[in-house]
Simulated scan of single mutants.
Amino acid sequence: MAFMAKLNEPHITRDMYEQVRAEIGWDQNPPAGCVLHMASFDEAGAHTVDIWDNEEDLKEYLEDRFFPALRKLGVSTVNPTWSEMHVCAAAPEIQRYVLDATPLRSRG
């Protein structure tokens, strides 16, 4: 069953987000089970939404990669929330926003 994870953090800046993303190695090695990751920033801070194949992959990513990266970079603790996904709908035009983050294991 798919899960949607959300994070809304006023203390996370765009620069901090990019540092954490680089530390995790998201582009070179996307986390197993993460189907979609979106991030935005405004005067209220960082906002992310992820879609995960299952809760186990999400929890493993948080404990093994995300939280350690935050600690290493000295970023304050964050409090993601997640719940079972009810529906996800995307138009074909979504492709224009998708970055090439194909896992190395699938590139051949």
Rank of each mutant, 00 (worst) to 15 (best):
N29D: 13
Q19I: 03
R14F: 15
E60Y: 08
N29R: 05
W52V: 02
A91C: 01
D57E: 10
L36D: 03
D100R: 05
N8A: 12
A44I: 00
G108I: 09
E23V: 00
D100M: 05
W26V: 06
A32G: 02
W26H: 09
L70F: 14
T48K: 02
R105G: 02
F67P: 04
R65H: 12
G25N: 04
N8P: 02
E9Y: 08
T81Q: 11
S76C: 09
L7C: 05
H11L: 13
D53A: 07
D64T: 15
L99N: 08
L7F: 13
M85T: 13
P30W: 02
C34R: 13
L70S: 01
R21A: 10
P31L: 01
A91E: 07
G74S: 10
H86G: 09
D15S: 09
R65M: 10
R65D: 12
I94M: 13
T13V: 12
M1H: 15
L99W: 03
P103F: 03
P103N: 08
E60S: 10
T81G: 15
I51C: 04
P10G: 02
Q95P: 01
S40I: 03
T13R: 15
G25L: 04
C34F: 02
H86Y: 08
A39G: 06
T77Q: 15
R105H: 09
N54M: 04
L36K: 06
P31K: 01
S106F: 14
Y97E: 04
Y97R: 00
C34K: 06
R105F: 02
P10T: 09
V35N: 05
F66C: 03
L58F: 11
L36I: 08
T81C: 10
V49I: 14
N29P: 03
M38Y: 02
R96D: 03
M38G: 08
V87K: 12
D100T: 08
Y97P: 00
M16Y: 14
E84S: 05
W82R: 13
E55Y: 07
Y17W: 12
V75L: 10
A39N: 12
P80K: 04
N29E: 09
E55S: 14
R14H: 13
W52K: 01
E93R: 03
